[in-house]
Simulated scan of single mutants.
Amino acid sequence: MFDRKLLNESIEKRIEYFERIVVNHPKMKKALNDIEDYLAVADTNNILLVCGPSGVGKTTAFCNLVKRCDRQVE
């Protein structure tokens, strides 16, 4: 949960606080793991297509995958 004092803060402060909150849906976590597994064995001639309706999390999944890859490189 969050500190109830946040409710007395400005709208900007509340938005700033909640923009940093990320909750992974179990299916998103599995999808990311599946993509990582696929990429681990893929050669340079493979293409991965991710498709779905607007708003389901394709871009979010890609951004999370990039973050995971960055952490592995560090």
Rank of each mutant, 00 (worst) to 15 (best):
H25P: 04
I15W: 07
A61M: 03
E16S: 10
N8F: 14
R68F: 05
Y17D: 08
G52P: 00
R71Q: 10
N46R: 15
C69R: 14
K27T: 11
F2V: 10
A42G: 07
D70W: 11
N24L: 09
C63L: 04
N64I: 02
C69Y: 15
C51M: 11
T44P: 03
N64E: 00
L49G: 03
C51N: 14
N45D: 14
E12N: 06
V66M: 05
G55E: 01
P26S: 08
P53C: 15
G55P: 02
A31T: 06
V50R: 01
L39Q: 00
A61N: 00
Y38N: 04
K67A: 09
R68C: 03
V22K: 06
P53E: 14
L7P: 01
K29N: 11
L49M: 11
A40P: 05
E19W: 06
A42E: 04
V41S: 14
F2M: 02
D37Y: 02
Y38P: 00
K30G: 03
L7Q: 12
E12I: 06
V41K: 13
M1A: 13
L65N: 00
D43L: 06
K27P: 01
A61E: 05
T59P: 04
L39C: 14
L32A: 07
D70T: 13
S10G: 11
A40I: 09
A61G: 06
R20S: 15
C51D: 13
T60S: 10
R68W: 06
Y38D: 02
T44V: 09
H25E: 08
R14T: 01
L48A: 04
L32V: 07
V66R: 10
I21E: 07
M28F: 12
R4G: 06
F18Q: 10
G55A: 01
N64G: 01
N45T: 14
P26E: 02
R20Q: 12
P53Y: 15
D34N: 07
Y38W: 09
A31V: 07
N33H: 02
N24C: 10
C51S: 11
N45P: 00
D70E: 15
K67E: 05
K29G: 02
L6I: 10
K58V: 08
S10C: 00
K67W: 05
Q72W: 09
V73F: 08
M1S: 13
D34C: 03
T59S: 13
F2C: 09
K27Y: 10
D37C: 05
L32M: 05
N33M: 01
D70G: 04
D70R: 12
E74P: 01
E9T: 09
V23R: 02
F62Y: 13
T60K: 02
L48P: 02
S10N: 08
P53V: 13
Y17W: 11
E9Q: 12
E9A: 05
